[in-house]
Nucleic acid binder design. Structure first.
Lengths: 215, 215, 215, 215
DNA sequence: CATGAATGAGTCTTCATTCAT
DNA sequence: GATGAATGAAGACTCATTCAT
């Protein structure tokens, strides 16, 4: 496992400006190729060419193709998990309905910032290396939500971790369906309203808390 | 598109194909190879050998590798969509809480019948051809649920199609997370209880119906 | 080590006539490419093309380039070691001068049967996998010679294994020099005469045996 | 041939090159990389990094990779040939047994001064450019030995050049076997004793000289 | 002058697909 | 109809060499 992990680490941090630009170009190019051609045809050469560099340069920054894809996925997931953690911290001690609406809004904002990228990365997440990254991001997000739920003023959760995991993935599911084009949710606002309702009613289906939470 | 569609059709008629022991063996073998080796190493030769035949025979039944994978995915999705359609029909005119529990139970039963297969097929679904099949299955399931919801005696849905789509994917999300090992839901019963609660409270968050539904 | 060993094993034994011909062609082609282009440019594609096949076929019989080269080297070395073992057995109990002349003749006959091949394979022997094969062949030959020397009627060897190893490599050295074009030995007969003299005098420089060897 | 020869020459004058600390570092680094990674992975970048410089600097001193390797090999061979020439000159007019023991001692001392280097360079010697260098060194050594033998007081050689070539390579063979790990010679002293015996008896197997050599 | 990022030709290897047996 | 050997296009990755900084 440590070997696999090592094999997916970027080779060098792009400290210099030029390098940084190259790496950025590679990321963008990879997402584009992923979208236009699919994971199977997302080859190192194609990515490099679209990025305006050469394969050699790609391999200067990533030890192999999977490391590049993993890096892109990681950045994407980290962004979402960060946003999630932030709002969950802010919503500590609030009523669950607030939690639901704020969490949904934050998640959608992060996930739909670049819908093409989000969509393209689902394929990467399905590959061997991607699953671990997703699991890690999910764990972070679930933990954030768990803490938030445990602090709710109006509802008591016997198993907040379980509730958090279900809620998180109940949100992820429809978003994925929409992004992958399997379903349409009308406007983005419509999707937000539905998910908020979904989570809020789920949270409120748990027993009301009689007394305040002790800090 | 017509070309693509044709390219993914099995070569022989479905009747012959389904009855053939070779085809069955190929399906099983393909799932096994998919699980053990991953999509990238799920080659026609490997599948054929594990199935106890030869590549040549594989090509007798499928025009190409993708057609084989598509067939497996399709069978899997059809099974789930069928189960879903059946129970949705049965629950017509029942209260939404019944609908939620029966739908969840049926979905889990179908999806977790062979968890390894379900998990392995996520990779296939992510490939180009898979998305269409998934979309089609989703559409079928969403339609079944939509009809069911519209007939609920106790709740009125302004946009039952939207509610169905959200509910369906809210169910799919956590199941996928569990199957892909990104989250644990304790026992399978625990998962069922949570999802039932999720859907039931979501459904009941919609306006109560004053009068009976007209048939 | 077991992994390396496995990685160098041929993939399948050429049981069928056609396969056997392909393998034979690959061997010949590899030696030719080795000679004409050098080890560094002895690529799988080049070998396959010269053999009149395709890379794919090459990989049907050998898991990788090194395995092909190792197979050729092994066959070559086995031939020499076999010849050596045979004559050493035949010379048991003879005077050392006979041993020297017969051993030299047999070694030269085997090694110079196809001088081009012999020469080309020195490069292979220098590569990682080749050293082991050479060491093994050397060990076999040294053992054969050791047994032979220990049975000499006229000379007693305190450390026949050491004498065998020195004698063997004293023979190998000049032959290699000649094959690699580093030195000329005039006719092949001249080389044989010199090596015979070398070994005979070396053997006879050891203490004379007073009594017969016990069987 | 002239082109090849030019391509392998160091770029700067030998005087400058030898005195440069960078060149020295490159030589040492190259031998180390050769040993640790093998010829195939002995890349210019790796050598430069291990030497504490950059590829660019390496190309300041050598026009290409082969020139670097050739330079190292040449230095190694020159050292041995020089030592050989020196003692051969010193032993002029001595009895052949002295010649044998002194030559063997000098050769072993030079060749085993840095056994790792000696071993690593066999791979370089096998490459295209290496053969010429080896041939040249061999020619020098053979000439030295030839002259020495021709001056022996106690033995007359009809073809001293041939005897020299055989003796030289009879010595080289076992040393190589030991260095490449194909055979063990016990202690280094043991090897020396054996080789001395080998050469001495070989020399003495030639006709005794009745009269003194004319100067 | 030193550096090391960039280049891209060239290797090995795999795999879908065909077709002679 | 079944088989599996043959094919060769395509992909990942490396490395000698150059040249802008």
């Amino acid at each position: 496992m440590s070997k696999d992990r090592a094999a997916l680490q970027p080779r060098k941090s792009p400290v210099q400006a030029r390098s940084s630009a190259t790496v950025e170009a590679l990321h963008i190019a990879a997402v584009q190729v992923l979208m236009r051609e699919g994971l199977g045809r997302c080859t190192t050469t194609r990515v490099a060419v679209r990025a305006g560099t050469s394969v050699g340069s790609l391999y200067q920054y990533y030890p192999n193709r999977d490391a590049l894809l993993a890096a892109i996925l990681k950045r994407h997931l980290d962004g979402i998990a960060d946003a999630c953690a932030r709002v969950c911290r802010e919503q500590q001690g609030r009523p669950v309905s607030d939690m639901a609406s704020v969490l949904v809004r934050a998640f959608l904002a992060a996930k739909l910032r670049d819908p093409e990228e989000s969509k393209a990365l689902y394929a990467v997440a399905a590959e061997r290396g991607g699953a671990e990254l997703c699991a890690h991001a999910q764990a972070r997000m679930a933990a954030s939500i768990t803490d938030m739920l445990a602090s709710a003023v109006d509802v008591h959760f016997d198993d907040p971790a379980m509730t958090a995991m279900i809620a998180l993935n109940a949100m992820i599911g429809p978003v994925r369906a929409v992004l992958e084009g399997m379903a349409s949710a009308g406007t983005e606002d419509g999707l937000e309203a539905q998910l908020t309702l979904l989570l809020a009613s789920f949270f409120q289906a748990h027993p009301r808390r009689m007394t305040a939470v002790s800090p």
